[in-house]
């Protein structure tokens, strides 16, 4: 059996792929942060300037739906990258490239769950209060 001869570019490929998924784990929290900023900023300005809060509310609730959709999409991608259904690996104990790849998917998946919870919590006042009281 031929010995596996390392390709010169193999490491670089692996690294650039991990770099991409390293970015990807920030997408969930990033959407959450943008949604948070939009909600607090728009409501504060609308209430201070006496703008139509009902309109702003609808706009932001639509934004919440879009944000949740985006986080869901990121989370789904991350879940597939984690590949837990096939491997059943929750721990990523070995330090191989594949483990790192799965680990980053796992982390991104958990982060997108907490981001979704964050978006829901920030949206609740829009649903339950819905005014400038």
């Amino acid at each position: 059996m031929a010995e596996h001869r390392p390709d010169r570019n193999e490491d670089r490929h692996e690294f650039s792929e991990e770099q991409a998924s390293l970015f990807r784990i920030t997408f969930g929290p990033l959407i959450w942060a943008l949604h948070f900023l939009a909600c607090y900023g728009l409501v504060a300005v609308a209430c201070a300037k006496g703008a139509d809060i009902a309109m702003v509310r609808i706009l932001l609730l639509l934004g919440s739906v879009v944000a949740l959709g985006g986080i869901g999409w990121v989370g789904y991608g991350a879940f597939r990258q984690w590949n837990v259904v096939e491997t059943g690996d929750f721990v990523h104990r070995r330090g191989h490239a594949e483990d790192r790849h799965h680990f980053l998917g796992h982390a991104a998946f958990l982060l997108s769950i907490i981001s979704a919870i964050g978006v829901i919590f920030v949206s609740l006042p829009l649903v339950m209060i819905g005014g400038c009281q």
């Binding site: 919870i117 919590f121 609740l124 006042p125 339950m128 209060i129 005014g131 009281q133």
Partner: peptide
């Protein structure tokens, strides 16, 4: 914690506007 915090948040938001009524 998610369940407890969600319940507290919903309850808290429900009474939040009382002092502004």
């Amino acid at each position: 914690p998610v369940v407890i915090l969600s319940a507290l948040l919903v309850w808290g938001l429900g009474i939040l506007t009382d002092p502004r009524r």
